[in-house]
């Protein structure tokens, strides 16, 4: 087993996903199979191989420090599930 129910719960918590017991069980089976398959990569010696993060050779382009956006608050808040005036509203945050 590459991954068990405890790992699944830890990962689900990290990813903020509520899993039902059935989902949890199916996650264990399928992720275990997938991760086992991914072990095939270990057959390759990658000791001196550079990792590829970007497939094309680019530099981060820069833009000038200019304010180009104007307030468009109503349109930007139109999709909000809960608002309070021009604030987004969420359940109470406890530090």
């Amino acid at each position: 087993m590459k991954i068990g129910p405890d790992d699944i719960r830890t990962v689900a918590r990290l990813a903020r996903l509520n899993l039902t017991p059935e989902e949890e069980a199916s996650m264990v089976t399928t992720l275990d199979a997938i991760l086992t398959y991914m072990e095939t990569l270990n057959a390759l010696d990658t000791t001196d191989i550079e990792p590829t993060a970007h497939i094309i050779d680019l530099e981060t382009p820069w833009r000038a420090d200019e304010v180009t956006n104007e307030a468009n608050t109503e349109a930007l808040l139109a999709n909000a599930p809960a608002r309070d005036g021009n604030h987004f509203r969420v359940p109470k945050i406890i530090d």
């Binding site: 990569l41 191989i49 990792p51």
Partner: peptide
């Protein structure tokens, strides 16, 4: 074991 390894394999594939 997973992410970095895969990034290196990506190099080999390229």
């Amino acid at each position: 074991a997973y992410y970095l390894k895969a990034q290196k394999v990506r190099t080999l594939i390229r």
